[in-house]
Amino acid sequence: MATVQNGAHATKTEAERVRVEELTKRIEMISALDEDELGGWTRMDWVLITVLGIVGPLVVLYGFAP
């Protein structure tokens, strides 16, 4: 019985080790990504998303307020 439990524990530990290894690899790869690889984002995007997401809707809400 003890051998079976030890075997299960060893398998779990091995699975955890593989997961941590995979996680470490991913963290290294993502941390090393260049900003350009994630797509552009310009000042014009900031203006556009701010108008679309908050300024425009607030103006409309204010305009229709009773």
Partner: peptide
């Protein structure tokens, strides 16, 4: 008319403010 305005404009504001702090960092 007010429901249309409140739901569309309000929804856009809520989604924008929820997305802004999350989208870039989640995507990055």
């Amino acid at each position: 008319v007010e429901a249309l305005i409140c739901l569309v404009a309000g929804n856009m504001i809520g989604v924008f403010l929820a997305s802004l702090p999350l989208s870039f960092v989640c995507q990055r």
